Amino acid sequence: KDKDLLKGLDQEQANEVIAVLQMHNIEANKIDSGKLGYSITVAEPDFTAAVYWIK
């Protein structure tokens, strides 16, 4: 199951987060929520590491 990592990002921010996570071998998903911006989700086992790397 995926957990929400970040919400309300613009496309550039979302792409930067995806890139950082991929560099650390964390699979992440970018979801277009329309006017609400983009959300990033990661698998539950990767959540703690993902939070660490996006600081």
Score class of each variant (00 low, 15 high):
residue 1 K to P: 11
residue 1 K to Y: 09
residue 1 K to C: 10
residue 1 K to V: 09
residue 1 K to L: 10
residue 1 K to A: 10
residue 1 K to Q: 10
residue 2 D to Q: 15
residue 2 D to S: 13
residue 2 D to F: 14
residue 2 D to M: 14
residue 2 D to A: 12
residue 2 D to V: 13
residue 2 D to R: 15
residue 3 K to I: 13
residue 3 K to R: 12
residue 3 K to Q: 06
residue 3 K to D: 04
residue 3 K to V: 14
residue 3 K to T: 07
residue 3 K to F: 08
residue 4 D to V: 15
residue 4 D to I: 15
residue 4 D to E: 15
residue 4 D to A: 14
residue 4 D to Q: 15
residue 5 L to K: 01
residue 5 L to Q: 01
residue 5 L to T: 02
residue 5 L to V: 08
residue 5 L to R: 00
residue 5 L to G: 02
residue 5 L to Y: 02
residue 5 L to P: 02
residue 6 L to T: 04
residue 6 L to Q: 02
residue 6 L to S: 03
residue 7 K to A: 11
residue 7 K to I: 13
residue 7 K to N: 11
residue 7 K to P: 02
residue 8 G to H: 09
residue 8 G to C: 10
residue 8 G to L: 04
residue 8 G to S: 05
residue 8 G to R: 04
residue 8 G to K: 03
residue 8 G to W: 06
residue 8 G to D: 05
residue 8 G to Q: 04
residue 9 L to Y: 03
residue 9 L to R: 01
residue 9 L to H: 01
residue 9 L to F: 02
residue 9 L to P: 01
residue 9 L to I: 07
residue 9 L to D: 03
residue 9 L to C: 09
residue 10 D to T: 15
residue 10 D to C: 11
residue 10 D to N: 13
residue 10 D to W: 04
residue 10 D to P: 05
residue 10 D to F: 05
residue 10 D to Y: 05
residue 11 Q to E: 15
residue 11 Q to V: 11
residue 11 Q to W: 13
residue 11 Q to K: 11
residue 11 Q to A: 13
residue 12 E to M: 10
residue 12 E to I: 09
residue 12 E to D: 12
residue 12 E to F: 12
residue 12 E to A: 12
residue 12 E to S: 10
residue 12 E to C: 14
residue 12 E to N: 12
residue 12 E to R: 11
residue 12 E to V: 09
residue 13 Q to G: 06
residue 13 Q to I: 06
residue 13 Q to V: 07
residue 13 Q to A: 11
residue 13 Q to L: 07
residue 13 Q to S: 10
residue 13 Q to E: 10
residue 13 Q to W: 08
residue 14 A to L: 04
residue 14 A to T: 03
residue 14 A to S: 04
residue 14 A to H: 03
residue 15 N to W: 07
residue 15 N to I: 06
residue 15 N to V: 06
residue 15 N to A: 09
residue 15 N to R: 06
residue 15 N to S: 07
residue 16 E to Q: 13
residue 16 E to A: 14
residue 16 E to S: 12
residue 16 E to D: 10
residue 17 V to K: 02
residue 17 V to S: 02
residue 17 V to A: 09
residue 17 V to W: 13
residue 17 V to L: 10
residue 18 I to C: 07
residue 18 I to T: 03
residue 18 I to P: 00
residue 18 I to F: 07
residue 18 I to W: 07
residue 18 I to N: 00
residue 18 I to R: 02
residue 19 A to R: 14
residue 19 A to L: 11
residue 19 A to S: 08
residue 19 A to M: 11
residue 20 V to P: 00
residue 21 L to W: 02
residue 21 L to Y: 00
residue 21 L to F: 02
residue 21 L to A: 00
residue 21 L to M: 03
residue 21 L to V: 02
residue 21 L to H: 00
residue 21 L to I: 03
residue 21 L to N: 02
residue 22 Q to P: 00
residue 22 Q to N: 10
residue 22 Q to G: 05
residue 22 Q to R: 13
residue 22 Q to V: 08
residue 23 M to H: 08
residue 23 M to T: 08
residue 23 M to G: 07
residue 23 M to L: 12
residue 23 M to V: 07
residue 23 M to Q: 09
residue 24 H to E: 01
residue 24 H to Q: 06
residue 24 H to M: 06
residue 24 H to A: 06
residue 24 H to I: 04
residue 24 H to T: 02
residue 24 H to Y: 09
residue 24 H to K: 04
residue 24 H to N: 05
residue 25 N to K: 06
residue 25 N to H: 11
residue 25 N to Q: 07
residue 25 N to E: 05
residue 25 N to I: 04
residue 25 N to S: 08
residue 25 N to A: 07
residue 25 N to P: 00
residue 25 N to V: 03
residue 26 I to V: 04
residue 26 I to D: 01
residue 26 I to T: 02
residue 26 I to K: 01
residue 26 I to L: 04
residue 26 I to R: 00
residue 26 I to Q: 00
residue 27 E to C: 11
residue 27 E to W: 13
residue 27 E to G: 09
residue 27 E to K: 15
residue 28 A to K: 01
residue 28 A to E: 00
residue 28 A to V: 05
residue 28 A to Y: 10
residue 28 A to L: 04
residue 29 N to C: 10
residue 29 N to S: 09
residue 29 N to D: 06
residue 29 N to H: 13
residue 29 N to W: 12
residue 29 N to E: 07
residue 29 N to A: 08
residue 29 N to G: 06
residue 29 N to Q: 12
residue 29 N to P: 03
residue 30 K to T: 06
residue 30 K to Y: 07
residue 30 K to M: 14
residue 30 K to N: 03
residue 30 K to P: 03
residue 30 K to R: 08
residue 30 K to V: 14
residue 30 K to D: 01
residue 31 I to Y: 07
residue 31 I to Q: 05
residue 31 I to S: 05
residue 31 I to A: 04
residue 32 D to G: 10
residue 32 D to T: 05
residue 32 D to Y: 14
residue 32 D to R: 07
residue 32 D to I: 06
residue 32 D to P: 08
residue 32 D to C: 12
residue 32 D to S: 08
residue 32 D to N: 10
residue 33 S to Q: 15
residue 33 S to P: 03
residue 33 S to I: 10
residue 33 S to A: 13
residue 33 S to Y: 15
residue 33 S to N: 15
residue 33 S to H: 15
residue 33 S to E: 15
residue 34 G to S: 03
residue 34 G to K: 04
residue 34 G to T: 04
residue 34 G to D: 04
residue 34 G to L: 04
residue 34 G to N: 04
residue 34 G to Q: 04
residue 34 G to H: 04
residue 35 K to I: 13
residue 35 K to T: 12
residue 35 K to Y: 12
residue 35 K to E: 12
residue 35 K to A: 13
residue 35 K to L: 12
residue 35 K to P: 14
residue 35 K to D: 12
residue 35 K to Q: 11
residue 35 K to C: 11
residue 36 L to S: 10
residue 36 L to T: 09
residue 36 L to N: 12
residue 36 L to P: 05
residue 36 L to R: 10
residue 36 L to A: 12
residue 36 L to H: 11
residue 36 L to F: 12
residue 37 G to N: 04
residue 37 G to K: 07
residue 37 G to S: 06
residue 37 G to A: 05
residue 37 G to F: 05
residue 37 G to W: 07
residue 37 G to E: 04
residue 37 G to D: 03
residue 38 Y to M: 04
residue 38 Y to E: 01
residue 38 Y to R: 00
residue 38 Y to I: 11
residue 38 Y to W: 15
residue 38 Y to Q: 01
residue 39 S to V: 12
residue 39 S to Q: 06
residue 39 S to T: 15
residue 39 S to H: 09
residue 39 S to M: 10
residue 39 S to N: 10
residue 39 S to P: 00
residue 40 I to M: 01
residue 40 I to G: 01
residue 40 I to C: 03
residue 40 I to P: 00
residue 40 I to R: 00
residue 40 I to V: 10
residue 41 T to S: 08
residue 41 T to A: 05
residue 41 T to E: 04
residue 41 T to L: 09
residue 41 T to Q: 09
residue 41 T to C: 06
residue 41 T to Y: 09
residue 41 T to R: 10
residue 41 T to F: 07
residue 42 V to P: 00
residue 42 V to N: 00
residue 42 V to T: 01
residue 43 A to R: 13
residue 43 A to V: 03
residue 43 A to G: 06
residue 43 A to K: 13
residue 43 A to D: 05
residue 43 A to L: 06
residue 44 E to R: 06
residue 44 E to I: 08
residue 45 P to H: 15
residue 45 P to F: 14
residue 45 P to M: 14
residue 45 P to E: 14
residue 45 P to K: 15
residue 45 P to W: 13
residue 45 P to I: 14
residue 45 P to Y: 14
residue 46 D to E: 05
residue 46 D to K: 04
residue 46 D to F: 09
residue 46 D to N: 08
residue 46 D to A: 05
residue 46 D to G: 03
residue 46 D to L: 08
residue 46 D to H: 06
residue 47 F to C: 05
residue 47 F to K: 01
residue 47 F to W: 12
residue 47 F to Q: 01
residue 47 F to L: 05
residue 47 F to A: 02
residue 47 F to T: 02
residue 47 F to N: 01
residue 47 F to Y: 12
residue 48 T to I: 12
residue 48 T to M: 13
residue 48 T to P: 13
residue 48 T to N: 13
residue 48 T to Q: 14
residue 48 T to Y: 14
residue 48 T to V: 12
residue 48 T to D: 15
residue 49 A to K: 10
residue 49 A to Y: 05
residue 50 A to E: 02
residue 50 A to G: 03
residue 50 A to R: 00
residue 50 A to H: 03
residue 50 A to S: 04
residue 51 V to E: 12
residue 51 V to Q: 13
residue 51 V to H: 08
residue 52 Y to P: 01
residue 52 Y to V: 06
residue 52 Y to F: 11
residue 52 Y to E: 11
residue 52 Y to S: 06
residue 53 W to N: 01
residue 53 W to D: 02
residue 54 I to C: 06
residue 54 I to S: 03
residue 54 I to T: 05
residue 54 I to W: 09
residue 54 I to V: 08
residue 54 I to K: 00
residue 55 K to D: 12
residue 55 K to F: 15
residue 55 K to V: 14
residue 55 K to N: 14
residue 55 K to H: 13
residue 55 K to Y: 14
residue 55 K to C: 15
